[in-house]
């Protein structure tokens, strides 16, 4: 063979070899896909998830690494592992988080969001991934407040726009709370409580534990949980693809014990540094 035809032949062989190898890689991915064959496949797309990281242990900014960590972060990571997506968790302010979702700035909101009828009107939820109840948080040395019924002459602090805010407002109309202070985030509400500007904070039980953890010996819960609500992942109204994928993943995670493991990790063992 001439030098030139040797060149051409080897090039063709190389191209064929690389082409087959590339096809092999794609085929190698197939078994993985068939393992999750029952679950929807989101094709590796990036899911932008908004969360208000002032809500331990669901989401909080880790002091050492400056990353958002928490139950919700682990949850979306587990979900994406099952339905093949890449989660991008963004810390966002609670106020305006839903309009931003609707506008398309995010694909989902995962931020300890309670499922309510009012919210269902303008956005879609997954099934509840955990149940929480609201609880009254007070200073450790508080003696006058033992339950949610002792707030008639007290000042209560909440985060604006939460179900806690709605409940407190309703209670105020019924004369069961004297004054409400509303803040853009729960850490300011808890700060207000610690500064003695408020007598109590109405907050979800799990976040209450989170704040009790970060303020050891300064806070306690007054009485038991007095409501029971489910938290869900929020997607845009009509986004059936994500809603279906997340629901399928959640069902699987519930079945294979991952949700229990996450609960154990974040609700029982987690002690913020």
């Amino acid at each position: 063979m001439s030098r030139r035809s040797l060149w051409v032949l080897s090039s063709i062989i190389l191209i064929v070899v690389f082409g087959v190898a590339a096809c092999q890689q794609r085929q190698a991915q197939q078994p993985g896909a068939t393992q999750t064959g029952k679950l929807p496949d989101l094709g590796g797309r990036t899911i932008r998830v908004a969360t208000d990281a002032t809500y331990p242990p669901f989401e909080v900014v880790d002091k050492t690494s400056n990353q958002v960590i928490g139950y919700d972060v682990d949850l979306i990571n587990e979900i994406c592992r099952l339905v093949n997506c890449k989660p991008e968790v963004k810390n966002a302010k609670w106020e305006g988080i839903f309009p931003a979702l609707q506008k398309g700035d995010y694909d989902a909101v995962l931020s300890g969001v309670t499922i309510t009828e009012e919210r269902e009107k303008t956005m879609d939820f997954t099934e509840a991934y955990i149940e929480v109840g609201q609880v009254v948080l007070v200073r450790a040395d508080e003696t006058r407040i033992n339950s949610v019924d002792d707030l008639a002459d007290k000042v209560v602090a909440v985060q604006i726009g939460t179900t806690n805010d709605e409940l407190a407002t309703k209670m105020q109309k019924e004369g069961k709370i004297k004054q409400i202070k509303r803040f853009p985030s729960f850490d300011l509400a808890v700060r207000s409580l610690l500064n003695k500007d408020a007598d109590a904070v109405i907050i979800d039980s799990v976040a209450a534990s989170g704040y009790m953890g970060t303020n050891p010996d300064k806070l306690k819960a007054a009485g038991e949980k007095f409501t029971s609500e489910g938290l869900g992942i929020v997607v845009r109204e009509g986004d059936a693809t994500l809603q279906g994928a997340f629901n399928a993943a959640l069902a699987e995670l519930k079945k294979n014990g991952t949700l229990d493991r996450l609960y154990q990790k974040w609700m029982v063992e987690y002690k913020p540094s």
Partner: peptide
């Protein structure tokens, strides 16, 4: 404004 927005969702 925040309060109204949180109540009515009409930003």
């Amino acid at each position: 404004g925040s309060l109204l927005n949180a109540r009515t969702f009409r930003s």
